[in-house]
Computed example of a mutant assay.
Amino acid sequence: MKKFEYSTVPLLVHATKEILDSWGQDGWELVQVVPGLNPENLVAYLKREIPQS
């Protein structure tokens, strides 16, 4: 069975692509984006598979 770890990441509207690209380079996959506490911020939910040993 695959196992995953999850992370929440604050996204700034003016730098969304750069932030997501950076996390993607580390193997994280975007699951969902939801509104943050103010209109200029979003929150990304990410996951990545935990390698089995």
Rank of each mutant, 00 (worst) to 15 (best):
P10Y: 11
N41K: 14
P35G: 15
L12I: 13
G36F: 10
G24F: 03
T8F: 07
E5H: 07
I50H: 03
L11Y: 06
Y6K: 01
W28P: 09
G24M: 02
V13K: 14
P35C: 05
Q25C: 06
E5C: 08
W28F: 10
P51D: 05
I50N: 02
D26G: 09
L30H: 08
K47M: 04
D26C: 04
L46P: 01
E18T: 08
L30N: 09
P39Q: 14
G27K: 07
G27N: 04
Q32C: 07
N38D: 15
L46T: 01
V43I: 15
E49T: 04
W23K: 15
K47S: 05
K17S: 11
G36Q: 13
G27R: 05
L46A: 00
K3A: 07
I50V: 14
Y6E: 00
E5M: 10
L12E: 15
L46S: 01
Q25N: 14
T16Q: 13
V43W: 06
L11A: 07
T16F: 00
L12Y: 15
A44P: 10
K2Q: 08
L20V: 01
T8S: 14
K3T: 10
S53D: 12
V9K: 02
A15G: 00
R48E: 02
H14W: 03
P39V: 12
R48D: 04
Q52M: 06
M1C: 02
R48M: 03
R48K: 11
H14L: 06
P10I: 13
Y45I: 11
Q32T: 09
A44R: 10
L37R: 14
T16N: 05
I50A: 01
T8Y: 09
G24K: 06
K2P: 04
A15H: 12
A44T: 08
F4H: 05
W28V: 06
